[in-house]
Design a protein around this nucleic acid. Structure first.
Length: 573
RNA sequence: GCGGCUGUAGCUCAGCGGAUUAGAGCAUCGGUCUACGGAACCGAGGGUCGGGGGUUCGAAUCCCUCCAGCCGCACCA
């Protein structure tokens, strides 16, 4: 595939050449500008290094520039270079875009990316915290795939550990059929809470639970069978939620903690053989440099507990080895909550000490902030007040459905419900994706399912309006035309269309889907402004053709952008 | 105590070292509606960018410091 240089890159390379004349490698600091199409801010820094007056340096840069009619440049203020692209250049760029299925977004060299996200717990309800990991992770997965990377999704489900003694005993008490029935209707919360309550109240149950953990770890066949029932039912439930969210995770992506059980001893043995393992207070630990506890003493990563059980550090280390050795990861991304940051850093530090994690493998945490309640306190399941994910989804679907009723729709039955689901998903996903990941997240149901303003449905609506034009026109798509961009609204829209590649790249390289959201919202606003002022179908001749082409590009850009975020762009709504 | 994250309009949030008015959305108030979908468009009010220093021609942005909030800091994952 021939890579297509983006508009930004073309302009930037011209400025780099001009800056090189004064100082090789000087950064033009080319940015989108409010005062022009682009502005180059690099003159200031360069002038300082050269010990010259900024405006003089700016003049020299302008003199060295060879823009070949691409743009007009002027010096402004203390030495900014304002760049206004010429119409012929924009015309050429838009034609290129029009014939490019990828709308200017390049494929990167193929890398294998292991993407760890979602990670709910077996026999536990999925809450809004899981929404964040799931939705962000899935958006990143889609973006990576579109960028040409091979994505290996890992759903690191919590399917092992001491709670399973309790859960299995509860299943036994309840009766298997009854338990399955409870789980299959999605009452994981009730199941877990009942088990926990019984555990707290009954010493007999406690003893049985502990014995059951031992049996589970010992591989007792009947216990394992019961455990499988819990896992199986839970995964079936998660799959339903993923389907409702249109998340690409499949049961095959579920590689839970239990998968690594048989490799945990190997982790300990290998660390011991390397002399990295230290016994401390009866636990086998690795001390990675740079980590201290509250007393300022070295903080261990506990690989094997004093009771000889394995902690989650061992599991995570085994997972790192698996992902590097067996899966051949070039890149590992973990979409995790802020509280896990230090733990994972320690795991990676130890993995690097052990030589299991080559420096060439890029490791990143796509950290997301805490989900807070309306009181701005942590939304914790312990408080009993956190909202079930399915409740949120169903609420959104219901509202979307009612909105369709209010507005009137040709659709009915399944088609109408399907559309309501598409709109609901857009609302929920966009609400989550459009905030900067690391910020704590104030959960507000009304805001999440809002359909006006900076929301997913607004973007869908913009797309549906464009498509509506083509339906009315009875034309599949427009031919490439000449873009004269006489109206400022046309020109603004055109510049927005040309900016997709940079938005996509910056969004993916920072693992920040919200950047793409911001771009799409801006584009949708540009479109609706254009839509308001520039009649398309009522125009004649070349202007009509041009506007149809702009509409076509807009629809494709919105669809593509929403698509890589995991949001549908319906033809009508 | 140490480390991390956060502090921008009434609310929820953008803001990439830059230029008279620090931007959106919601909410409030006021307009637009006989072209293509009003889930829209246009406009107004509303901000000592947590406080204070520093670097710089220039700081919401970089550095330091203080304040506030949240998270983590050895055997639950």
């Amino acid at each position: 595939m021939i890579s297509v240089a983006t508009t930004y890159e073309i302009v930037r390379s011209r400025f780099e050449r001009a800056f090189d004349v004064l100082e090789v490698g000087a950064d033009p600091v080319l940015r989108v500008s409010e005062h022009a199409d682009y502005q180059a801010n690099g003159v200031m820094a360069l002038a300082k290094r050269l010990g010259r007056a900024p405006r003089d340096v700016a003049q020299d840069v302008v003199a060295a520039l060879d823009l070949e009619g691409l743009a007009d440049v002027s010096v402004a203020g203390p030495g900014f270079l304002n760049i206004v692209l010429t119409t012929p250049f924009l015309d050429e760029r838009l034609r290129t875009l029009h014939s490019d299925e990828r709308l200017g977004v390049e494929r990167v060299t193929t890398r294998r990316v292991v993407l760890d996200y979602s990670a709910p717990n077996v026999a536990k309800e999925m809450h809004v915290g899981h929404l964040r990991s799931t939705v962000i992770g899935d958006a990143l997965a889609r973006m990576y795939r579109f960028a040409g990377c091979e994505v290996v999704a890992r759903n690191h489900v919590g399917d092992w550990g001491t709670p399973f003694g309790m859960l299995i005993e509860h299943l036994v008490d309840l009766g298997e059929d009854q338990a399955i029935a409870a789980l299959s209707i999605g009452d994981l919360d009730g199941f877990y809470k009942d088990a926990r309550a019984t555990f707290n109240d009954s010493d007999d149950f406690k003893d049985r639970s502990r014995a059951r953990v031992v049996a589970l770890q010992g591989g007792d066949p009947e216990t394992l069978r019961l455990w499988h029932v819990l896992v199986h039912e839970s995964i079936a439930y998660f799959s339903e939620v993923y389907a409702k969210l249109d998340v690409t995770l499949t049961p095959e992506d579920v590689v839970g903690e239990s998968y690594y059980n048989e490799r945990l001893q190997g982790v300990v043995d290998d660390l011991a053989a390397m002399g990295l393992l230290v016994e401390s207070n009866g636990a086998l630990c690795v001390f990675a440099p740079g980590f201290t506890n509250r007393d300022g003493e070295p903080l261990p990563l506990i690989v094997q507990k004093s009771d000889e059980g394995f902690g989650y550090a061992a599991t995570d280390l085994a997972a790192v080895r698996d992902r590097v050795d067996r899966l051949g990861a070039d890149e590992m991304i973990y979409v995790v909550g802020a509280p896990q940051v230090q733990h994972l850093e320690m795991v990676w530090a130890v993995a690097r000490m052990a030589g299991w994690l080559p420096e060439t493998v890029r490791c990143e945490q796509a950290v997301f902030g805490n989900v807070l309640g309306p009181d701005h306190k942590m939304f914790k399941s312990r408080s009993g007040e956190s909202v079930k994910l399915v409740t949120l989804i169903n609420e959104a679907i219901e509202r979307a459905y009612l909105t369709l009723d209010e507005r009137g729709t040709d659709l009915d039955g399944d088609a109408k419900l399907a559309l309501a689901e598409q709109i609901a998903r857009a609302a929920i996903k966009y609400a989550d994706l459009s905030t900067e990941r690391q910020h704590d997240y104030v959960f507000d149901l009304d805001r999440m399912v809002a359909f006006e303003g900076d929301t997913g449905p607004y973007l869908q609506y913009a797309h549906a309006r464009v498509r509506s034009i083509f339906r009315r026109a009875g034309e599949v798509a427009s031919r490439a035309s000449t873009f004269s961009l006489a109206e400022s609204a046309e020109r603004d829209l055109a510049l927005g269309l040309l900016a997709l590649p940079e938005a996509f790249v910056s969004s993916l390289s920072t693992l920040q889907p919200h950047r793409l959201c911001t771009y799409l919202f801006d584009l949708a606003q540009r479109f609706t402004a254009f839509y308001d002022r520039c009649p398309v179908l009522a125009s004649k001749g070349a202007i009509r053709e041009e506007r149809l082409a702009l509409c076509d590009l807009t629809a494709r850009t919105l669809k593509l952008g929403l698509g890589v975020l995991g949001i549908d762009a319906p033809e009508q709504m």
